[in-house]
Design a protein around this nucleic acid. Sequence first.
DNA 1: TTGTGTTTTATTGCCTCC
DNA 2: GGAGGCAATAAAACACAA
Length: 447
Amino acid sequence: MEESSELQSEENKVSNEKNKKRKLKTPAQLKALEDFYNEHKYPTEEMKLVLAEELGLTEKQISGWFCHRRLKDKRLMKDEAVANGRQDRSSGVIQDRGSGLGQDSCGSSKHADHRYLDPKEVESHGLYNHELSVADMTHRRRNHYPENVSGVDDTSSESSSFLQERFSQGQDPYDMEPSRHLTPNGALPPLNPKGAVKMGHKPSGYLKVKGEIEHAAITAVRKQLGRHYLEDGPLLGIEFDPLPPGAFECQTADTANEPYSVANPLLSNSPEIFAAKRQPSLSSRYDSYYTKFRSQDSHMEGADFGSLHESDFQDKQDKKACQNIKQRQSLYGYTNNFPGRNTFPDLYEDSTGEASAYNSNKSHRMSTKHGVEGMRSDSASNHSDHYEEKLTVKQKTLMLHGYDNINPKNIQRSEHVKSKPSSSIHNSRVPMDTEERGLSARMAKVH
DNA sequence: TTGTGTTTTATTGCCTCC
DNA sequence: GGAGGCAATAAAACACAA
């Protein structure tokens, strides 16, 4: 008995050493991961590698994080859908698009439910079809017709990844997808998965319909945030009656606190914002952390982060980690052409600032709990130290994929990312499931 | 301070696709 | 068969009330 327990403890020891316990990601890391996730739900191996390198994590950790993040997203979507369903039932407003579809596909996973769910059937649902086309068209249209409408701010409303742009230059079949929203008669041509197959790649299994399901859920939520539709309306060419004063009061208030969302409607479409707004109970530490950040964001805009950080114990560490990201960001083509507005690099400045706030909010707790973070930051700083060497290699690698092209749109996008950590979701998340799979596939094939 | 509930991270197994 | 993804699970970290 003792022997077995000893053996067990030995095993535990080994496994513990192997696991070295779980380590929490630093705020900066989380921020970087979240931002990247907002742009790419399904990063390629290469992206993961780069990210891992930048953040001082392992690729496995990155993969795991993204995996869990997707699950979390899905869970939130599901909860949202359920909540909407309840709300709809009680209010008799929108009926259950999200919950119904969401539960079918997301809820009970890819295996049983998705397998036999014909995307075409999903697409053929009139309501769903319509709403997808409206909401989806909004950003897609912007995505692919950036030259229209409101000039500079229009491009600034682009929050989808520049990577997508980069890849779209390679004629991603899914980039053709907007055309299906933009048929001359305004009808929504059916999405033909087989067509996607023919075109070289397709979302697999669960992903075949996941995107559409999310569209439904997102659309349901969006619909309830009328503001987005008002803002997006003109771009759709649809005239909306102006909201009466006082309508959507909370959102109006939010809008007041979210100066960018007016100019950049896409910001407000972030599911994470939804999450923050809709379910305080569901909000994780992370969400509250971001909520804090958002609330601070306007105050911190243009603020002297240095002064904010100086008193922060983790500041230097995170800054170091962030430096890597910044360089990556520059590597990716995020540049700040808009003085006074922080862009992607500053996003990570923010993240450090955020880390500061986060940490300070937690008073000394974090300062004592994680020696780990120092270690990680050390590793990050090591990365930073060697970054320039790596940069050339990475640049070569990334440039192979067209990462080097800097597009003003991307610059604008980065502003969104900055001003709203999750802001890019609107553009990126919705089509990402399908698009990015394609992107990833292409990236992989390039190798 | 402690107990409890929640969130996050890590691991494992299975499935699908190439 | 390998790679990548999802789901389930366990455990650590954290938040919060008593």
